[in-house]
Write a protein that binds this DNA or RNA. Structure first.
Ligand SMILES: [Mn+2]
Ligand SMILES: [Mn+2]
Ligand SMILES: [Zn+2]
Ligand SMILES: [Zn+2]
Lengths: 136, 136
DNA sequence: ATCCTACGATGGACTAGATCCAAGTCAATA
DNA sequence: TATTGACTTGGATCTAGTCCATCGTAGGAT
């Protein structure tokens, strides 16, 4: 069983067949599925699952902090189960492949006070762009 | 007249009343308007302008490299006329205010080869998150 | 100044992605 | 096994954006 499922059980999350398959298809490394992709994979395991439930469940996982939303292209949001290890993304400009990356250094420290406009800065998302080995 | 308009003229861009007002409403610092916001402001100056023309013109300005698309929230894309000075963004999590920022350091250099997965990395976008002075 | 025409503008239909809702179903507890 | 509030469902609805046939015009030619 997946780590995610285990954590959710531990938090008293009410378990249903639908929620289980959504959590299952999100399990893994470098996973960044759109809601439609989650629906397609969930439907393989549980044909009667509905689109609304997929959206409901993804939204709840985001609220619980177990999944993060990633927007790399202005199209469909992607859902990332790797929420417990802060990271950034490397995206292929041609095929859209996405890898998790962990840059060195502290980007927050690189933003001088004169560039903060009085904001209380709490985090940063970085999206590296390039071409993957297959697309070069 | 705006810098943007001047550059476009110099590039032989065919000028129409519609294109002029779109370019005009995009002029300024820290401007990051959605297509609908551009349409609303353009309509103030030229009531008969159409939504399709706003999208056509924005798309062309992006192709020309005079405007960049910014996606900060998975909702509507925003259009940024400050394309000739590379920069990143600081976004208020509550009210959505967006400021242009110029962090120190070279984020590309902070991505070690072991984290590049064979990609040819060519750029990076950074979105700082926080609360603006009015929203703290 | 007028003509010509390729390029731009238009409105409305259409699509993708996402959300909402009233009604039906069921997991968890007793 | 009875109860009940939480979950699921299909379909309607919404937002952002694209597409297209047709009309209009900017700007070069005369
Ligand atoms: Mn990730
Ligand atoms: Mn900007
Ligand atoms: Zn690729
Ligand atoms: Zn704010």
């Amino acid at each position: 069983m997946s780590d995610l499922l285990e954590r959710l059980r531990g938090r008293g999350w009410r378990m249903t067949a639908q929620r289980r398959v959504v959590a299952e298809v999100l399990d893994g490394e470098h996973i960044h599925l759109t809601a439609d992709e989650v629906l397609a994979r969930a439907t393989d395991r549980l044909p009667e699952i509905s689109r609304a439930t997929v959206y409901n469940t993804l939204g709840e996982l985001v609220s619980l902090g177990e999944v993060t939303e990633v927007t790399t292209n202005g199209r469909a949001k992607r859902y990332d189960p790797n929420a417990h290890r802060p990271h950034h993304h490397l995206v292929c400009a041609r095929c859209g492949a996405i890898r998790d990356v962990h840059p060195e250094g502290d980007p927050l420290a690189d933003l001088p006070a004169s560039e903060r406009f009085g904001f209380t800065v709490s985090g940063v998302e970085m999206t590296y762009r390039g071409l993957c080995p297959q697309c070069v």
